[in-house]
Amino acid sequence: MLVLALDTATPTLLAGVARRSADGAVEVLAERAVPSGTRHAELLTPAIRDVLAEAGATLGDIGAVVTGLGPGPFTGLRVGIVTAAAIADARGLPVVGVCSLDAVGDGARTVVTDARRKEVYWAAYDASGARVQGPDVVRPEGAELPGPFVGDPAFAARLGAPVEAAEVTTTGLLRAAAGQLDDPAAAAPLVPLYLRRPDATPPTSFKPVTTS
C-alpha cells in the first residue's frame, strides 16, 4: 500500500510517499522537507504534487494518509492536519494521526522542538523507541529533561547539553503510525496536540469610557 505522509508541526514542512508492505516494512519513494517557516499553507499542496510525481503515483494510488498532530505552533500545525483530513475525505481514504515528536530520531532519546515563547515541546523515548514521557511543553532552563537530545539544536545552550539535529521524517511518521495503519478503520480521530489553551481571558469588568 502507498501511504502519503504529511507534517507541519515545525518550521520544516514534510511531505512523503512511502510503500508499506503487509509485514510493516517501509520504503520511502519520495520525500520533501521544505524549510517553509510560516508558509506551510502556500507550499504544502505543491510539495504533495512533487512527491506524488517523483514517486510516479497519483492520489488514486494512495491507500492511506498519515499526519503529524503536533505539538507545534498552532497556525502552521492546523495546515497539515486539515490538509490530510480533506485529502482523505475527498478520496475516501483512512487518515491516521500521530504525535509529531514520535517521528523525530529513533531509539532512546528526548526530542525537543521550538514551542516559541522561550519554551520547548518535548517527549522522551526508551531504547525500544517507545514514548515514556510527554509530549509536554516547558521552559528548557532547569526543567531537568533526560538526554540525549535530538531535534532543534538551537536549544542546546539553554538545555546545557548538545542537541543532535533531527526533523520529522516520512519513515518516522509511518513507524509511529504502524499500529493504526495495520487497522486503519480503528484509527483515532484527528485531535491536534495543542498542549496550551487559547490565549484569552474573559474580562472581569469593562472599564467605563469616562472617569468620574
Binding site: L44, L59, R78, A86, R91
Partner: peptide, 20 residues
C-alpha cells in the same frame, strides 16, 4: 483573521488537489 483564513485555505487547496 490569518489563523482562521489558513484553515479554510488549506482545506480548499487539499480538496481541489484531491478532486483534481
Amino acid at each position: 483573521l490569518t489563523g482562521a483564513l489558513l484553515v479554510g485555505l488549506a482545506a480548499a487547496k487539499a480538496y481541489a488537489l484531491a478532486l483534481d
